[in-house]
Design a protein around this nucleic acid. Structure first.
Lengths: 223, 223
DNA sequence: CGCCCGGTCAAACGTATGTTTCAAACAGAT
DNA sequence: ATCTGTTTGAAACATACGTTTGACCGGGCG
């Protein structure tokens, strides 16, 4: 049957172009010409450009979501009763991302970059789509974070989670470029796993910093 | 003689629209109609849309750059000889941003959002413009960071700086949305100053986390 | 006054976008 | 071989964009 692979070709091309140029900066014509398919194929198979964007996200977010739920299951099972630590929770997340079945070696990088874009570019439809589609694993992650940092106020925790998201999405989204720079400047090779290994302690330390609102600063602050 | 204020009206409108919608998502027609000026005025006064973007950045980045240099001067002067601490350096940066003379109360928010967008949206011309225009204060900030974290290897420092940049740029670029969410969920009002006040300790703690490559992984006490 | 010139304006330019159309090609079942 | 529903193809659609044009206005200066 060889039922046409047009759909996948479009998704592959769209994914890559979106990741490196953003959504509004990527036209359907770029996508279809990169995918070597007819322009009309996008609207035929997906309905609209926005729907294509949703499909691109769904293709990697759904498996990731499943992997993540599974990792969280194991985590909670292993430390039965006690809530998992912050470090364990973060590791469950990052390892789910890294271990996820990739279509190619740049997969994880593209994946991260798209997540960053989704958050950054103010595409109302995308945010709505993601919220009503993947609220469950996201909510679960949030709950785990909450249990792992009982010392934080809700507001502090909220902001620090945003800081973590930012550091992660940003770093991963430009990880290719950053790795090249490092390679040129210091002659050091780096893998995505290396980056993650450095990122997690950074995040955990930031997350557990002493309360900014009551802790005095190291040096007596100039009132 | 009431020399036309068209230029400023355009800059004001552009600044606001860019901040809330991004660059490619904001058309000249939106800008000119918000500013109540003729469409052709943009190309007449600025030459092109890209040049307008540059002008928007220059208008707040140049004073900020000056303020920052001054803050760094004072900083280095005060702790004569000794290099400023990480916390001091970060505070010099953020306080320069916050204290900068604002055109209106949303100024700092817009300013941050635009900086985040500049880093996030892959506008080649913008990055080039910023690099060749404001490389000096940026380089100086990097040098101060280096002196404030002598315990870090070059590679560790490199990655952690990226993490900091990411957390900052990302948070600031979506700060309005994040503040709204917080307002709806917990009924808490937040100012940019609040966010910054929470961000700095997070960054400082992450920056000074124990070396990820030699520290044991489990959950040891903080050595 | 006449002249000029910085600034404004409505209108048009050419190009690129997302989407639609409709005929042709194709597959599989009858 | 013929029919049927699905998928491709080239072309056109309407709209929006950034930019350019040329007419027009209103003071300052000779």
């Amino acid at each position: 049957m060889a039922q046409s692979d047009t759909v996948d070709r479009i998704l592959d091309a769209a994914e890559e172009l979106f990741a490196e140029r953003g959504f509004s900066e990527t036209s359907l014509r770029m996508i279809t010409s990169k995918a070597s398919v007819n322009l009309a194929a996008v609207n035929y198979h997906f309905g609209s450009k926005n729907a294509l964007i949703h499909s691109v996200f769904a293709r990697f977010l759904t498996p990731f979501s499943d992997t993540l739920e599974q990792a969280f299951d194991e985590l909670e099972q292993n430390c039965a009763g006690e809530p998992p630590t912050l470090d364990q929770t973060l590791r469950a997340l990052t390892e789910s991302a890294v271990r996820m079945p990739q279509r190619n070696e740049r997969g994880i990088s593209i994946f991260m970059r798209l997540l960053g874009l989704a958050y950054t570019q103010s595409q109302g439809h995308l945010r709505k789509f993601l919220e009503q589609q993947y609220s469950q694993p996201f909510g679960r992650f949030m709950r785990l974070l909450k249990e792992a940092t009982p010392q934080l106020s809700a507001v502090d925790r909220y902001w620090r989670i945003q800081f973590m998201l930012g550091a992660t999405a940003f770093t991963m989204s430009s990880s290719d470029a950053l790795r090249d720079i490092l390679q040129n400047k210091l002659g050091v090779e780096t893998s995505v796993q290396d980056i993650v290994a450095r990122l997690v302690p950074f995040l955990a330390a930031g997350m557990q910093a002493s309360d900014p609102m009551q802790a005095p600063v190291g040096k007596p602050s100039v009132a």
